[in-house]
Design a protein around this nucleic acid. Sequence first.
DNA 1: CTGGATCCATGTTGATACTG
DNA 2: CAGTATCAACATGGATCCAG
Lengths: 129, 129
Amino acid sequence: MTGVVDREARSTAEQPDPCDLIRSVLARVGDKWTVVVMDELRDGPRRFNELRRLVSPITQRMLTSTLRGLESDGLATRTVHPTVPPQVEYALTDSGRALLTIVKSVATWADTHLDTVYAARATLKGPKS
Amino acid sequence: MTGVVDREARSTAEQPDPCDLIRSVLARVGDKWTVVVMDELRDGPRRFNELRRLVSPITQRMLTSTLRGLESDGLATRTVHPTVPPQVEYALTDSGRALLTIVKSVATWADTHLDTVYAARATLKGPKS
DNA sequence: CTGGATCCATGTTGATACTG
DNA sequence: CAGTATCAACATGGATCCAG
C-alpha cells in the first residue's frame, strides 16, 4: 500500500498502523457474509430475524458474528428496543454506506472483467495441454 | 448485491453466477497477501525471489499460492524465461491494475474513516461500563 | 426474538525439507 | 532460482442446544 496512506502523517493519535486497518477492512469485506448483510441493510434498518431470512442460509451464529464485526468497525449500528419480545435493529452508518459503495465498484469491476477472469481460469484448467 | 449486477442479463455464456465471482474476488483481495503482492507489482514486473524479499515475511508457499491465485483470475501474468538459472517474471494485467485501483480506494476509505473505526472499536471494548 | 456457549469438521497457513 | 510436498497449528464456519 505504499504511497496510498502516509504512515507517519497523523501526529499524535497514532493507533496501531493504518496498513493493519486496511487489511482488516479488506478481510472483513472478504469474508463469507459481511457484504451480503451490508447489502441487505442498504435500504434501511433491518431486524435480526429479518436479516436471517434475507441472507438465506446463514446461521444465527454467523449472522450475529457478522453483525458484531460490522458494529465493531463502525459500519453498522445496533439499536435495542426494550419491548417484549425484544427487537433489535441494525442499520448502516455513513461509513458503512461509503464502504458499500466502494464494494459495489468491485462488483462492477467483476462484471466488466468477467471474460478475463473466466478465460484465465479456463486456461489454467486445460488449455488442451 | 441486488441491483449491482443483472443476474439474468447475459444471454448464453452463463458461467456459474456473477455473484459467486464477486465473492471470490472479494475473498481474494481479502486474504493476507494478495493486495500486498499486487501493490509490489504496481511499478512493473517482478521476479519470484524479488517479490519474496519485498513482501518481507511471506513464505515461499504462500507467495506461490498467492501468485497462482492472481494468475488464475487473470490479474497477473507469469512469464518464464528459459535461462539458467530459471527466471520467472510476474506482472499485473490491465484487469489487475484496474482492480488495484479500486482496492486503493478502500485504503482511502480507511484513511478517511480511521476515527469512526477506532472509535467504534474502543466503544465495544470499554465505554466505562 | 435475539443471541450466547459448545462441539466438531474442514480449510487455511506456516515451517520445513526436498527438487528440476 | 523457483518452486513442490508434507505435516502440524490454527482459524473458520456450521450444527446444536440453551437462556434472557
